[in-house]
Amino acid sequence: MITSDILSAILVSGIVLGSGYALMASGLSLVWTTLGIFNFAHGVLMTLGAYIAWTVSDAAGLNFGLGLAIAVSAAIMIGVGILIERVIVRPFYDHRDILLVTVMTTLAAMIFMQKGIQLIWGARLKQLAPIATGNVQIWQTTISAQEALIIVVAPLLLGALWLFLDRSRTGRGIRAVGQNPDAARLIGIDVSRLFIITFALSAVLAGLTGVLLGSIRLLTPEFGSEPLVKALIIVIFGGLGSLGGTVVAAYLMGLLEAALVFFVGIYWAPSMIFLLLILVLLIRPQGLLGKVVR
């Protein structure tokens, strides 16, 4: 029987999951809508951001404050994002199969960075210090303050991203490039610059997600793999067309996963999600909420 405390537990853990997924998937979706490429290195960017923050903040590392750690991590992520765009994406803009080629290059980048992280930091488990400590009770469920922070910060970050894309000159330029790069270039938009900004922004988002999740999960070199796979499924569900669709799909996915974990158990939840995915795609090949993307 579903009592109110069970419902509360499912809802709260679903929203915690969904918040992380939304941050993760929005970065992927941003790059997809603007550049038309799918960045498989997105998950490992999240790992890298968390590891850098750990090195700066942890007692075993440089032992500076968490605030500085986040700043350093974000700064380095900007650099890494630009580097990825420059080296393994830019050379293929005129390629006929840009999508397939960049899937391969970003996959290679993912392996490169993941193994690099393993060589630098070792395979031993690490954990970031939480930004907020203590526990918080929401409705009838008690969660850690860090999880509550994620619930609050995710919509704030996503809202800021939306404001940036909707209101600022640069943000509008990014959307214009996403809709029609040739027309954007014709009216004098610096497309190349916006591609770089998009990639850097997406990398920073990934890094921040890593910092937020790095204190409620354990850091391993494979830290970003599972969120990446979830983000894959989310963008399939939500369609890749819009940021809004992706965010909605991310929260739905979080709730669905929390409910499935409760009803069919943690072992069968992933399989059920995949079955559902196949069904959705058979009925709506463009995704549950998406428009046709070619």
Partner: peptide, 14 residues
Amino acid sequence: RLQGVYVVLVTFAF
């Protein structure tokens, strides 16, 4: 029945 990136995503998810 799918196009482009969706094929990549579904096969990876599988």
